[in-house]
Structures are given as C-alpha cells and as structure tokens.
C-alpha cells in the first residue's frame, strides 16, 4: 500500500482533514487551559476525542447545508465556518464573540454559515432540525439538515416525535448520534433499552446505519454517500457514530466513572494519530511535517487567544438588544 498512486483520496484533502482535526484538538485544549486559568466560567463541554465525526461529516457537506447541535459544539461551529477567534471570544464573553457574549459555550450560532446552534436542552434541537428539513422541502431545495445529538438525547421523547415527523413527511434530515457512551456520568447501556442506538430508527422505518466515529475517512465516505442520496431523494437517516470523549462530561467532571483502561483503549485508536500514521505510510507527509503543522496550529492558538483576550467586553447597554427584532 506504499505506492502513492493507490491513494483513494486527494493528498491536499487528506492534509487539510488532518489539520482540521488537529486544529479542533488544539483549540479544545486551549479552551481547557483558559478555563483552568479562570479566564471564563460556566459550563464547558469539550469535544476532545470526537474530532473524526466532526470533520468527517463536515467534509461531506456543502456550505448551503444546515447544521444544528447540542451543547458540545465548539469544534462543530468552527468546522461549519465560524472563525475560531469568534468562538473563543464567545467563550470569554466578549463582544467579538459569534453571538456577542449572549450565548457562551453552549450557544454558538451563525446565520451566515447556517449553523443553528448550540443548544442546552438535551434533545431539544431534534424537532427544530425537522423544521429546517420541512423548510428545505417546502422550497424544493436539495440542501441537507445535519442534526447532531448525543447518546443521552436518544432517550428524550421529543427525539421520537421528531423522528416520526421526519419519517412521515420524508424530511431531508441526517440525525447523527455521537455515541460517546456516557450521558454525563451514566453509561447509556444502563438506561437504554437497545445496545445499538441506530436501532431507534426501526420503530419509524427510517434508514439507519453505524460508523466507526474514530476513523475520519470512514465517516467521510459513509456520510458522503448518505448525503448524496438525500439530495436526490429527501428522506431522513439516523446514523450512529461510535466515538469517545477523552475528558469528562464538562471541564468540572474528572470522569471517574470510567476505567483508565477504557480511556486508554480508545486513545489507542486516536483519530488524529490514526490519520497521521496513514499519511506517513502513504508518504503524504513525514513525521517532521506533522510536527511542523502542530507547531503552526499551536502558534495560531496563541494568536486566537490573544485576540479573545483583547476583545472588549460587551457594553452593559447591549443587555436589552435582541430580546425582539423589529
């Protein structure tokens, strides 16, 4: 498999996918450091370990596609196009934040990039996603709505209501369950009637599948195929991506409900290391190049943090802005 000609993917594509995942990882690490330094407060849910799903899905979409997510969404927001400086500024509660300090960690939004949040009520985004699918169909467009949710949200009643409507009316919504196995500190198997969450689709006669969420290329291939079918013939799909978060539920959670062995098992299949090995094996990049990209990205993080540090706080007079629009 050493010969370059056998590469299934474009070299530049592979490099950019690697850099995007690494960017997400380094961003979340920087967020965690800033939190520990007391630069901001509130809830903060990190995506570390789940980069392959985020980037693999993003590369399957086009800019006009819509996305909505739960509260673990910093890197999804960045992948969808929001400037990392605006995301970190938002975390810091600054006026250059993507929602000018009105949202924080759980509520990143961008109308320009069709990123509809950033939601803090587990599962609440799932019927909203059906509504976006409804609007796409209303306008006979061929865009796709991607709705992220976690394994915890799979037991919310609203999710079932959303799946039923999406199925009954053939709405172009791709529900992606990022199954990181724990709803906060609860192993999903302890509170869920099925071992595979993709089976939730069976009751609604919805197309469903599972993918290795630790392998970005598998995610990309699989989601690309789903999305291209959905554009031609709108109907929902429920995808379960098996993934893992290395850190606790939020920055204040040490994650002591999991064994070190379990965490180590997943880290041994780290999506960034895996793709890095692939790049080296196929002579797309050398170890030195990987290291230099990492240095570049870390330098970018320093620049991003300096920007967020320098961004002014929102003026208190803005408190009343945006309760309503005219």
């Amino acid at each position: 498999m050493a010969a370059e000609s056998k590469l299934k993917y474009d070299r530049d594509f592979l490099i950019s996918v690697y850099k995007d995942m690494l960017f997400g990882r380094r961003f979340e690490e920087r967020v965690n450091q800033a939190y520990q330094k007391g630069k901001f407060a509130g809830f903060c849910h990190l995506h570390i370990g789940q980069e392959a799903v985020c980037i693999g899905v993003q590369r399957s979409l086009r800019p006009s596609d819509y996305m909505i997510s739960g509260y673990r969404s910093h890197t999804q927001a960045i992948a969808k196009g929001i400037d990392a400086k605006a995301v970190l500024s938002e975390l810091f509660g600054k006026s250059d934040g993507c929602v000018r300090g009105k949202g924080g960690s759980m509520h990143m939004f961008s109308k320009e990039h069709r990123f509809l949040g950033g939601h803090g009520i587990v599962g609440g985004q799932t019927p909203i996603a059906a509504g976006v699918g409804f609007a796409i169909k209303y306008d006979k467009a061929d865009d796709v709505m991607v709705c992220y949710l976690g394994d915890g949200a799979c037991n919310q009643g609203q999710f079932f209501e959303a799946l039923n409507m999406a199925a009954a009316w053939d709405l172009p919504v791709l529900y992606i369950i990022e199954n990181n196995q724990y709803g906060m500190g609860t192993d999903f198997r302890r509170v869920t009637s099925v071992e595979s969450l993709a089976k939730r689709a069976l009751a609604f006669d919805i197309d469903n599948s599972q993918v290795d969420g630790m392998d970005v290329l598998k995610v990309y291939d699989h989601v690309s195929s789903i999305v291209s079918k959905m554009r031609k013939k709108p109907k929902p799909h429920l995808l379960e991506a098996h993934t893992y978060r290395y850190r606790g539920h939020s920055v204040s959670d040490p994650g002591s409900y999991r064994t070190k062995d379990e965490v180590a098992q997943f880290q041994a299949r780290d999506p960034i290391t895996t793709l890095g090995d692939y790049l080296k094996k196929h002579k797309v990049a050398t170890e030195d190049e990987l290291k230099s990209w990492d240095r570049e990205i870390k330098d970018q993080m320093t620049e991003i943090e300096a920007f967020a540090d320098a961004s002014p706080k929102p003026d208190v007079s803005e408190l009343w802005d945006h309760v309503f629009v005219d």
Partner: peptide, 23 residues
C-alpha cells in the same frame, strides 16, 4: 395535519421559522 406531538410540531415550527418560513 400534525401528529399528536405538541413538543414535536412546536419545535418543527421553530426550525422552519429560523430559516425563513412563517408558521
């Protein structure tokens, strides 16, 4: 006609409204 899913179709309306419809 909606299913008997008030949370569901309330949310559907909100999503549709966010992207330009007026439910």
């Amino acid at each position: 006609d909606s299913p008997i899913s008030e949370a569901g179709f309330a949310g559907l309306g909100i999503g549709a409204a966010m992207v330009g419809l007026r439910p």
